[in-house]
């Protein structure tokens, strides 16, 4: 997919670009309102990732103009304005998703991909990883073409893993993905472990390989690479 990232902080911009590019996406950058407007006007993008506080304007105005000119692009807002009102306003103006700072790159990646799938394939495209395949629209997971019987959270975890394959997902990032801000208790990480154990068992039962690697006790990586 082709992504335009609008963010005035160069360092964050580069991190987002690197992360998304490594996933095989084409990633373009804009550091201000004016460049963003120009690029959106000239080139087609699948996804627009945008900060709201830009040095020369308000990101919400870009959302407005995109909607007014009927430009077909999915919009994800990344903002430090964490007032609920801002979120509601952005979504009402036509943004598709709103991610509060600080966010994990893996979370942004998951949101961008999910949005892209919804828009391009109406979620009907399978996500594949060797013998594992996921059908997002029906929330089904197959291992060697056998449907797994997963709980909601187990599905969310494996989906998050497959979208961020080969990447380190810290326990905190997984917890935030599964429960949002709700879980800030130490116990939260214990039941990630429980969910993972169950998930591993269910995949193994269908002769699936165990791709879930524990990394330094800080998190997990879903990968077939050593």
């Amino acid at each position: 997919m082709k992504v335009l990232v609008v963010e005035d902080n160069m360092e964050l911009l580069k991190d987002v670009r690197n992360f998304l590019s490594e996933e095989g996406n084409i990633c373009e950058l804009a550091t201000n309102y004016k460049t963003a407007q120009e690029k959106i006007g000239f080139f087609p993008y699948d996804i627009l990732i945008m900060d709201l506080n830009l040095p020369d304007g308000d990101g919400l105005d870009i959302v407005k103009s995109v909607k007014m000119d009927k430009i077909d692009v999915g919009i994800i807002i990344i903002s430090a304005r964490n007032a609920l009102g801002d979120k509601v306003e952005a979504l009402e103006l036509g943004a598709d998703d709103y991610l509060e700072k600080p966010f994990y790159l893996s979370e942004l990646n998951a949101r961008a991909k999910a949005l892209y799938r919804r828009r391009a394939y109406h979620g009907r495209k399978e996500i594949n990883f060797n013998e594992i395949s996921i059908r997002p629209e029906s929330r089904e997971v197959f291992v060697n073409n056998t449907l797994l019987n997963l709980t909601k959270k187990e599905y969310d975890i494996i989906h998050f893993f497959l979208i961020n394959k080969h990447r380190l997902l810290t326990k905190e990032a997984i917890a935030e993905h599964l429960w949002g801000d709700e879980v800030e208790m130490t116990d939260g990480y214990k039941f990630i472990y429980t969910h993972l154990a169950n998930l591993r068992k269910k995949i193994a039962a269908q002769n699936g390989e165990d791709y879930i690697q524990s990394i330094y006790n800080v998190g997990y990586k879903f990968s077939n690479r050593a």
């Binding site: 964050l12 994990y104 990032a173």
Partner: peptide
């Protein structure tokens, strides 16, 4: 609260990237 969030995002993601690297 605004200005602190962007640096936190960057710092935290950099740490995750560092943790991703092997041979620590």
């Amino acid at each position: 609260s605004h200005e602190i969030q962007t640096p936190i995002t960057i710092a935290r993601n950099k740490v995750v990237l560092l943790l991703e690297s092997k041979n620590l």
